[in-house]
């Protein structure tokens, strides 16, 4: 029999392997439709990892926003631009060096962090027990994540909502919604109707 711990490690390893393969494929591919789809796959795999970390709220958001809406919006953007990525005229050495140095710095930074899942980590000894103790008494909400998000950190969530609001204002200022005067779409439809009439005749 496989113990649950071993199973969890195998699942994590598989998810991480697929994550790396997807990332490499995204870097390699020039066909943007495939890249958008793989970005969705990447989000879904991350959502799987969040579930395995017991962070279901984050996983839910990642699956809905990252794999769902973002893919649709990216496809919409792609339809406005090109289907193929242009080859960059610059050599890749400088960007590669920047990536390697940044990556190395980040990995070096993790060496000082407490081991993964350690009960002595500052996050487990400082605010988390406080929230766990106070939430049932002060709010009566069973999901502590919701209580932190909407009540204890209500100010941050108001900020996030305002960010989304600002984003739509920016998009509408840049693109607008041309639902009445869709000349391109109308012409395409007219062509189609003409063709159908031609077929009938």
């Amino acid at each position: 029999m496989i113990s649950p711990d071993t199973a969890a490690i195998v699942i994590d390893a598989l998810l991480f392997t697929f994550l790396v393969i997807t990332a490499l494929a995204i870097v390699q591919l020039r066909h943007l439709f495939a890249v958008v789809m793989l970005a969705g796959v990447f989000s879904l795999l991350s959502a799987g990892l969040f579930v395995s970390l017991d962070a279901v709220d984050v996983a839910f958001t990642e699956a809905a926003v990252g794999a769902g809406i973002s893919t649709v919006l990216m496809l919409g953007t792609m339809a406005l631009t090109a289907r193929e990525e242009k080859k960059s005229p610059h050599p890749i050495f400088l960007p590669l060096l920047v990536c390697l140095v940044t990556g190395a710095a980040l990995i070096y930074g993790t060496l000082d962090m407490p081991p993964f899942g350690s009960p002595d980590a500052p996050v487990q000894t400082h605010v988390a027990p406080d929230y766990i103790a106070r939430t049932p008494v002060e709010t009566g909400v069973p999901n502590i994540v919701t209580a932190v998000l909407a009540s204890y950190r209500g100010y941050d969530t108001l900020g996030e909502t305002t960010v989304i609001f600002t984003a739509v204002i920016a998009v509408l200022m840049l693109l607008g919604w041309d639902t009445k005067n869709r000349s391109l779409a109308r012409n395409a439809r007219r062509r189609e109707e003409d063709r159908e009439k031609g077929d009938e005749a």
Binding site: I164, L175, D178, A188
Partner: peptide
């Protein structure tokens, strides 16, 4: 806000695309 913003952004993008 999130629901209507997502619909709004989708309309903003999609209304510029000629129907394929």
């Amino acid at each position: 806000t999130v629901a209507t913003v997502m619909i709004a952004i989708f309309i903003a993008f999609a209304s510029r695309i000629p129907s394929i």
